[in-house]
Simulated assay, not measured.
Amino acid sequence: MVRFKNRYITVEIVCPFVSEDKPLHLKPKIFHDTLLSKIQLLHGDFGVAAVTNGFLTKYCNENTRIAIIRSRHGPHRFVTSSLPFITKIGKLDVKLNTLHVGATLKHSFKFIEKHQRAYLDSMWSKLKTDEERQKLEAAVLDYTKTDVAINIENIA
């Protein structure tokens, strides 16, 4: 039996035209398809064929603008080399920053938790009531924002 190694790429989505206090309306399916089309453009059919097996968008948070992409070890280099060249996702002008590349999803979530705690500390000073703070904390620390439909499509 062969064990397949994966890499989890944590990406920050920077959108200069949408203010940081508003959620970024971005579907994981659009993000996934945009990334595959950019890999096709840069690395051709070989890059897409290498990346497609095991390629998933595992997590996408609209509030903190962070996404996790799963890719196989080896072809993950095609993904990470294509990320800086993405300037548009759907109708949004964006810039993607690679924050972390990890071997396990657990370590990626640990990194995201540290990153999002820093984000919460900076945003709490702008909020006035405790209710607003609790809503923001619940939205930021929600790790269930994943589109299960595209993940099921790609697993089969």
Rank of each mutant, 00 (worst) to 15 (best):
L83V: 08
T146A: 12
G44I: 01
N53I: 12
L92V: 12
K29I: 07
V79K: 02
D21P: 10
A138V: 01
E12G: 00
F46V: 14
K145W: 03
N151K: 11
P23M: 09
I9H: 09
E12T: 00
I155Y: 14
R117N: 10
K58V: 15
K91S: 09
P23I: 05
E12N: 04
L99W: 03
H43D: 05
L41I: 03
N97L: 08
K110N: 08
A139V: 04
E132M: 04
H100G: 01
A103K: 09
F109P: 10
N53A: 12
A139Y: 02
I68L: 15
K106P: 10
Q134W: 07
V14M: 03
K38S: 12
K106C: 11
R7H: 06
V18F: 00
L26H: 15
K38C: 13
R3V: 12
L41F: 08
L127W: 02
P75M: 08
N151L: 08
K22N: 11
L24N: 12
L141W: 04
K91P: 08
F109W: 07
N61I: 00
S125G: 13
E137P: 04
R7G: 04
F31N: 01
G44R: 07
E132I: 05
L120K: 02
V140K: 06
L127V: 01
K58S: 14
D33V: 10
G90N: 05
N6L: 09
T129G: 09
